[in-house]
Amino acid sequence: MLSQESLQQIDREIAKYPPDQKQSAVMAALRIAQVEKGWLPKELIEFVARYLEMPPIAAYEVASFYNMYDLEPVGRHKITVCTNLPCALSGGVHAAEYVKQKLGIDFNETTPDGKFTLKEGECMGACGDAPVLLVNNHQMCSWMTTEKIDQMLADLDKK
């Protein structure tokens, strides 16, 4: 269900923990699975659980508890904008409104061409860089003026 490369990455994570504590690798394993497949359908979560010799329900609990896992399909690029107080004081809400307007979608929606999903995020721990947004969970973009948002969306559109 997952590529050899992903499985090797998961094995490296398992090696970080005591031999009888494979379940500790579940957060990393779900992340690796999501990066390869784009989101986490139930069968994929079950596969990860079996690989780590843990009950599927326990893996599902983890996948549904932490909000960076996607349990439903998302667009090719997921953009998460922080609108918490420190960001909001420095244009975070404005940045989110601008992205909405540019993409023609609201939070938790995907563009009809399947390219972009927009999410509202909670504190990302980068309040000094506001406005801040995350692209596909792992790439943080700082000081997002409208010009920079234009550029970012144009670049992502080509990918």
Partner: peptide, 26 residues
């Protein structure tokens, strides 16, 4: 070793953090 969270403020609470390293809900 490094262990990453995946979006849960509560894991900054130290025993939730331990639960999370054990591969559970925080």
């Amino acid at each position: 070793f490094a262990h990453h969270g995946y979006g849960a403020y509560i894991c900054g609470e130290e025993t939730a953090l331990l639960e999370s390293i054990e591969g559970k809900k925080g």
